[in-house]
């Protein structure tokens, strides 16, 4: 290897300097050039589609059962046939219990956000872990453009990935549900809505993950807090529902995963916030984590 060459000053001349578009391109190169990123994206896709397929079979079976035995479950053998419901009645009955047909394309999102959320934390925490962040912030000394460029890459990739995964799940679910006599189509209430909105939820979780990674600067720490926010908090508050008094029964609706999940449903539900409110609360949680992340990134030494 020869190291005797002396630098030519030529090629770098005539460039335009630091631009946001350049930073965006840089973050995209960084995003696509890691094997771990590609693998995690693949896992996310497989998880969403896989769980969706299982959900199609399960929900088909449940509706089949409801049709045969009524919404309250199997009755004694030889019960009068009058208990039987029509298909649409059975679908409505299942829907009232949170088992929807229109939600099948995004049934796998809870697993999907676990993988993609971890990817989002890693996207910045691994830069802190390896020291890469010092190169990044030397090239982009104002720092925030690098964060926003990362956020844009992440939001676009997670939205598109979820959209495609949800649509593929939808296509696969058509023949499965047909086997149960259920007609699955884009014309069914809520199907187009969930296919389009699933990505919003996943992108929101990813943005939260990116902010947590920025705030905590550690991959493990960031993922733990993300899991706590989107999984443990829901379990914790569901236990609160056992406490006497109506107040505690409503607290659970305000945790990010429940509010975000409500955003993905259609129609009103008794004693429950509306899908729009759910979406706004979910957005509130994202802002709550992102603002301190941006402030610390700007002010703390790297």
């Amino acid at each position: 290897m020869s190291t005797t060459t002396i630098p030519a000053p030529s090629a770098a001349a005539g460039t335009t300097g630091l631009t946001f578009l350049g930073v965006l391109r840089s973050e995209w190169i960084k995003f696509r050039s890691l094997r771990s990123t590609q693998l995690l994206l693949l896992f996310t896709f497989v998880a969403v589609v896989g769980v969706g397929i299982i959900a199609a079979f399960l929900r088909g079976t449940i509706i089949d059962q409801i049709m045969k035995f009524g919404a309250t479950g199997p009755t004694e053998p030889g019960a009068p046939a009058g208990h039987q419901l029509t298909l649409e009645q059975a679908i409505d009955a299942a829907n009232a219990q949170g088992i929807s047909i229109y939600g099948i394309p995004i049934a796998g999102l809870q697993l999907g956000i676990l993988v993609l959320g971890a990817l989002a934390v890693l996207l910045i925490a691994s830069e802190f872990g390896t020291g890469m962040v010092r190169s990044t912030m030397t090239a982009v000394p104002k720092r925030l453009p690098a964060f926003f460029a990362k956020a844009i890459v992440l939001v676009v990739v997670s939205y598109v990935l979820t959209l495609v995964a949800a649509f593929v799940t939808f296509l696969i679910s058509i023949p499965i549900l047909h086997g149960y006599g259920i007609d699955m189509s884009l014309g069914r209430d809520g199907v187009v809505y969930t296919i389009l909105m699933g990505g919003v939820y996943v992108a929101g979780v990813a943005l939260t993950g990116l902010s947590l990674g920025t705030l905590i600067r550690s991959s493990a720490g960031g993922i733990i807090v993300l899991v706590a926010l989107f999984f443990l908090l829901e379990i914790g508050t569901s236990l609160l529902g056992l406490v006497p008094g109506d107040f505690w029964k409503y607290v659970g609706q305000y945790v990010p995963s429940v509010a975000g999940g409500r955003m993905l449903e259609i129609g009103d539900k008794a004693a429950f916030i509306s899908p729009l409110s759910g979406g706004l609360i979910f957005l509130g949680w994202i802002v709550l984590v992102t603002v301190p992340a941006v402030i610390t990134l700007k002010t703390r030494d790297v």
Partner: peptide, 25 residues
């Protein structure tokens, strides 16, 4: 400033390419 200011799983070429992209080099 620090020879370790690179992501360990990224190739040297891609590292430089990403750095260059910020300034449209």
């Amino acid at each position: 400033l620090d020879a370790k200011a690179v992501h360990t799983s990224r190739s040297a070429y891609n590292h430089l390419l990403a750095m260059a992209a910020t300034h449209n080099i």
